[in-house]
Design a protein around this nucleic acid. Structure first.
Lengths: 204, 204
DNA sequence: GTTAGCATGTAAGGAGTTACATGATTTT
DNA sequence: AAAATCATGTAACTCCTTACATGCTAAC
């Protein structure tokens, strides 16, 4: 009946982890912080929020005082529903973050996963980055093989398309290499806030 | 009931324009020539073929002789259904090629459209390339504006993601500029076969 | 004689979108 | 008083995937 999983669930949990929000605000954030890449519609957001509440990962706060800036100007406006992440919701987000899913999940939604790296342990970051890199390298190998086989039969445009595609992938691999190296280098000198131990499970 | 439109229909029409094929072969081509980018499944391909036949854009040929390499080794094998593009199908493909659709169509499936540039008039090519470029430039402007507004509130990873994203888009814009210039330059000296007049509608 | 590849299909489901419906509030 | 923005929601639809069903042939 409700939405099961999907990138939207992940993004909502991730954004609500930073601070509670109502739906409208959430959608705006989805289309700026993350949403340079994709725009979600209300038609998918609100149903998604409902099922997340049903599973106990979010709780609704009709007019509590989660934050002054959110509650204060509520004078006559339609009652906004502010959503807050529960402890189970945090666990679920953690699970999704570190999940080595069925390939397409990680490949298509890498951008969104990366956007939440600030909330991730270095172990997970390394795993995601290296996973992405190895899948791109696989793809590169397939492209090269296919190109070697069919080079003669292809017209100029198709060839140019494949050339540009391969260059883009190669470029991303180099980018990933830099990121991975910088993660490795930062193993000693911390960059920002490094979570000291992932075994800390006490809820706030 | 059947598939309405979508990129699959477009790709099938485009591939069958080159030469008749049966479903299995079509799927392989979809995953090499075009399909470096995406892989379609039989579960979408065969139903799509059926509705295209229903609309008169394809005709089925059980065991005709469209090509030696296709008919010859059919000794005992399951009877393959070879699909051939009709005159109406060609018109439909032409229509889809030159269509200035509802934005997302052109944006998400640019790669597949580009793959069929060899079968397109230069007018259409220019229109598609310039359309793509202007949409990317719009997006770039939005990204820059959003970045200027929220730079302080973003962590290092989100910032790095946006930086890399913008660089990729800028790179594609430069690529498009080169292509557009080369199209303009080739206005006199022809490159390969230039279709002289698109009003030629006689079927083969 | 079992696996791998060829070849075609159906049913159910997933993850979203578009279009619509509603209504209050601030801006022009 | 009209238009834009805030705010929440539903129904129908789209386009594609997964899992399944079927059966034949070639290679190991």
């Amino acid at each position: 009946m409700g939405r099961r999983s999907g990138i939207l669930e992940f993004a909502v949990l991730g954004l609500l982890r930073e601070s509670p929000m109502h739906g409208y605000e959430l959608r705006k954030r989805l289309n700026t912080s993350l949403g340079v890449f994709r725009a979600f519609s209300y038609g998918s957001l609100y149903p998604c929020l409902k099922t997340l509440v049903q599973r106990g990962w979010l709780i609704e706060e009709s007019g509590g005082e989660p934050d002054d800036s959110l509650t204060a100007p509520l004078t006559g406006r339609r009652a906004r529903i502010v959503y807050r992440l529960t402890a189970e919701g945090k666990e679920r987000f953690e699970e999704l973050l570190s999940q080595t899913g069925p390939d397409t999940w990680e490949d298509e939604h890498f951008g969104v996963r990366f956007a939440f790296f600030g909330q991730t342990s270095r172990d997970v970051r390394m795993r995601v980055l290296e996973g992405r890199r190895s899948r791109l390298e696989e793809r590169l190998a397939r492209m090269r093989a296919s190109l070697a086989r069919t080079r003669e039969r292809l017209d100029d445009y198709t060839l140019e398309l494949q050339r540009h595609g391969m260059e883009s992938v190669e470029r991303e691999v180099r980018w990933l290499n830099e990121l991975i190296e910088s993660e490795r280098a930062g193993r000693d000198q911390q960059r920002g806030e490094t979570p000291p131990d992932p075994s800390d499970d006490t809820a706030t």
